[in-house]
């Protein structure tokens, strides 16, 4: 396995972790805003706050890790994506900033401020949408070169059905991941009402998820036939993902083993996410930039990997400690330790 592959695998794994923890966070914001709108806030807000308060900043780091990592391992991607993403990425940063400040501002200053809670919910929809645009762009067809500098064709991007399919998928996935997770977490807190509500959401969003995912593969066939064909070669990964989805839904439906349902859901997304990633190989930006021509020099690659391993040795125990204290501590989860 070459250094390039190690690099992109590590980064893809971190992006995947961000998709999971980020989705839980974004979805929670949406559900929270929705519950205010429908006067059900008393059911959800406690559960959501208890889970999110200690982890929101850590969520953010997964994203920064991916961005810094891709520039480190693939410096050319900074040139390509940096040049074309000014507007969509700036929108994401501004929304992320407003969102990130919410916890601190809300918990101490503007408690119960409805406008801010709605804004928080809205960012949960717009951030995944603006970030998923990068996935669309990397499929190729929206970037041309003027004087050796890549330029993004916004009209083509915004009128492409592929763009909107990916946006819809990202939104539905956020709501689904978040509701499956929060069903489990609410169940652990012993809050029957919140569990029932989140379970309902999980079931509601499960079908649109599969429809949207299927739609993208269909769109890709028209947009990027190479990518479509390599997806077809990896059909078994997507088939496993589908089976895991069905199993998750079955457990949720039968109100049994919510913890197992969360793991099945995570593995479902893992197969789909890695299936998508592997089929995109070797392109970072189709067809201009591959992981081979964008790779950093060998000395840097090796030192980055060494630092990554050392960092992980410190990071994994710390993350484990965080989870133990806030996710798996029975007393804390049930609200007996504040």
């Amino acid at each position: 396995m070459g250094l390039e592959l190690i690099g992109i695998t590590v980064l893809w794994l971190f992006l995947f972790l961000y998709v999971i923890v980020g989705s839980i966070d974004y979805g929670a914001g949406v559900f929270n805003a929705h519950s205010i709108l429908t006067n059900k806030q008393h059911i959800l807000s406690k559960v959501i706050q208890r889970y999110l308060s200690p982890v929101w900043e850590v969520t953010n780091v997964f994203f920064v890790f991916f961005v810094v990592g891709i520039i480190g391992f693939f410096p050319d991607s900074a040139f390509y994506f940096g040049s074309i993403l000014l507007i969509p990425a700036s929108v994401s940063i501004i929304l992320l900033a407003l969102r990130g400040s919410y916890y601190a501002f809300e918990s101490y200053g503007a408690k119960g401020h409805k406008g801010y809670a709605f804004m928080y919910g809205a960012t949960g929809i717009f951030i995944p949408a603006s970030l998923s645009v990068v996935l669309t762009i990397s499929e190729g067809g929206f970037v041309s070169f003027e004087n050796g500098v890549p330029v993004l064709d916004y009209t083509a991007l915004l009128t492409s059905p592929l763009t909107w399919s990916i946006v819809v998928l990202s939104l539905v996935a956020v709501l689904y991941i978040s509701s499956v997770f929060l069903t489990w977490y609410a169940h652990k807190t012993g809050d029957m009402e919140a569990t029932a509500l989140m379970r309902k959401y999980a079931i509601i969003w499960s079908v649109p998820l599969i429809v949207a995912a299927g739609g993208i593969i269909f769109e890709l066939r028209n947009h990027n036939i190479d990518h479509f064909e390599s997806i077809m070669q990896l059909w078994w990964m997507f088939a496993i993902s589908f089976v895991l989805w069905a199993l998750t839904l079955r457990l949720i439906w039968l109100k049994r083993h919510f913890g197992a349902a969360v793991w099945l859901m995570i593995f479902q997304f893992m197969f789909a996410f890695f299936g998508y990633g592997i089929s995109h190989y070797p392109y970072l930006l189709y067809p201009h930039l591959t992981i081979y021509d964008g790779f950093t020099n060998e000395a840097m690659a090796i030192s980055l990997i060494v630092v990554f391993i050392l960092g992980m040795l410190l990071l994994l125990p710390s993350l484990y400690l965080l989870l133990r204290l806030f996710l798996f501590d029975k007393k804390y989860v049930k609200g007996k330790r504040e």
Binding site: V58, V61, G311, L315, L321
Partner: peptide, 20 residues
């Protein structure tokens, strides 16, 4: 890229333990 990468790890620790 190396110090930038290391900075993210430092930031990670800070975030985790601050939360705790």
């Amino acid at each position: 890229a190396l110090p930038l990468f290391m900075e993210v790890f430092a930031f990670f620790f800070e975030a985790i333990f601050l939360g705790i």
